[in-house]
Amino acid sequence: MTPNVPDVTLADSLPDPAKLIACPQCDALHLDADLPIGSTSRCVRCHTVLESPRQLALTRIVMLAAAALILMIAAIFFPFLELHAAGRIQRSSLLDTVMAFSTGMTAPLTLAMAALIVILPVTRFVSLIYVLAPMAFGWTPARHASRAFRIAEALRPWAMAEVFIVGVAVALVKVAGLAHLSIGPAFWAFVALVIVTVLKDNFMCRVTVWKTLEQRRPS
């Protein structure tokens, strides 16, 4: 918890800019020391985490992203929820949920739903694998790796898999009075996907990834 990077006190004896790091949130300058694995450095002023390198973090993120991708495929194609009422069974997949808005005035929401639940999360997984797999193997970065990682980071707030799963829970309660409901395998795939995504994002330290990309870039 302690800030183990000393803050810069005097403007006149400022070291080389490359040896400094500015807090992304409040702009405070710190000396950019190489951190030991497992430690965390925080901004002295606003306490934002600056860097937190972890053992084998890159390899773990790549593996978790690949797992998430496979789970997403399962979640799309297996039945998600089943509704039993009046002797009939209504199966609905993730695709049906996305298409729920496809008629009438709510049609534009279809695209937004598809993006928030499936397309944006998948884009993030693919670009993270693309950027970090060569890093994990110790190779030079792939072409346009910087752009791909910038996109992955920009999409982060918009990939709403975990929000969706809470929505499913609420919907289950609302429908429970109306009919008997059972949960399909795709639901569990999606729950696993959310857990994997949260784990992956916890491992990821943006500054460390950028530094690694910079070091490995062929000059």
């Binding site: 609905s92 996305v98 929401l109 639940i117 709403m160 809470v166 929505g167 609420v170 409901l181």
Partner: peptide, 17 residues
């Protein structure tokens, strides 16, 4: 982003019922 819950609820209900 958590405000989006209700929109998802509506989509799921509409797909199910």
């Amino acid at each position: 982003r958590w405000s989006m819950i209700d929109v998802f609820v509506v989509a799921i209900l509409a797909a199910l019922v």
